[in-house]
């Protein structure tokens, strides 16, 4: 698309119609408005994360830090468990995303075949799980019986894939022209080869999408840590942050104890610290959203 659009833009430069102007104004207007409306509150988050309490507690907006106080970052980053849990989370996100995408592709591909018998029944089987679940207790018992507690796999297996990602992938596959597969089959390709050689190269946008979903899910998950893992060496980042923030923060009057008050500063610092990697991943995935991939495949 990038390739195609460039000459079109050049051509248009000669004569821009009123329509071009209107579309541009609308498109740029909408996007600009959104970007500003998001950046401003976000700057507040960043400012608070590096400001002393006196700034944080002042009502009104704090878009640019005026006084600096990195105690929030210091408190969190000096926690022994913090960096280790960072590593565990990176591993978890990588392994979880890779296995999730792989299994999603394997499952979505056959289900995209319109001639596969029992396909609709299987789809129902999947969709049903998106709306009904047995709840926390039976799941906990299951995981205990499978001996997954205090096991790294507990971060991967019980949330391997989601029905939603599966459906989106399947739909993407279905939108690909069937002619591609037919011609490959004529060349003697097996089903696996069709998936790997024909579908996969065409599926970068959808793979980028579901990778992002899985990755973000794994990055943010901490309930499974709390429920199933008690070993410190397996703690994930978000859980460590939760415990740091929760430690000593109680509104209970009966406790009668002037325990540590974790300020907003610290919360925001935790938020910023945990956000950095996930924000950095996006630009890498982004190129798959922009590249037009049909071009090459049609030629081949």
């Amino acid at each position: 698309m990038k390739k195609e659009k460039q000459p079109a833009a050049v051509r248009r430069k000669r004569k821009r119609s009123a329509e071009d102007w209107i579309v541009d104004i609308l498109a740029y207007g909408i996007v600009l408005l959104l970007v500003v409306s998001i950046l401003l509150p976000f700057m507040q988050v960043i400012t608070i994360s590096m400001s002393p309490a006196s700034v944080v507690n002042k009502t009104g907006f704090h878009l640019i830090p005026t006084e600096f106080d990195f105690s929030g970052y210091r408190q969190i980053a000096t926690d022994d468990n913090f960096w280790h849990s960072y590593l565990v989370t990176v591993l978890r996100a990588a392994a979880g995303t890779a296995s999730g995408v792989l299994v999603t592709l394997l499952t979505a591909y056959p289900l995209a075949k319109t001639n596969l018998p029992y396909r609709k029944g299987i789809m129902m089987f999947v969709v049903f799980t998106m709306y009904f679940s047995g709840g926390m207790i039976p799941k906990y018992l299951l995981i205990k019986n499978l001996h997954l507690t205090n096991n790294f796999l507990v971060y991967i297996l019980p949330c391997l894939i989601t029905g939603f990602a599966l459906i989106i992938t399947r739909n993407f596959f279905m939108s690909l022209p069937p002619a591609l597969e037919e011609s490959a089959k004529i060349d003697g390709a097996t089903n696996i080869q069709v998936l790997l050689k024909v579908y996969l190269p065409l599926s970068t946008p959808v793979m980028a999408t579901i990778s992002l979903w899985y990755c973000v899910h794994h990055w943010n998950a901490w309930m499974d840590n709390m429920l199933y893992v008690t070993k410190n060496s397996l703690y994930v980042l978000q859980y460590v942050i939760q415990t740091i923030l929760a430690n000593g923060q109680t509104a209970d009057m009966e406790m009668m104890s002037d325990v540590i008050v974790h300020t907003e500063t610290m919360k925001m610092a935790a938020l910023v610290l945990s956000l950095i990697p996930i924000v950095c991943t996006y630009p890498f995935l982004q190129k798959y959203f922009v590249k037009g991939m049909m071009v090459g495949s049609v030629k081949g």
Binding site: V103, T104, L106, T107, I122, F125, V126, T129, F132, S133, G134, G135, I137, P138, K139, L141, L142, L157, P158, C159, L160, I161, G163, L166
Partner: peptide, 15 residues
């Protein structure tokens, strides 16, 4: 994929 749904989604469904 189906094994995953069977074990981790339908497994606890009795709840």
């Amino acid at each position: 994929g189906l094994l995953f749904f069977l074990v981790f989604c339908y497994g606890p469904m009795y709840g």
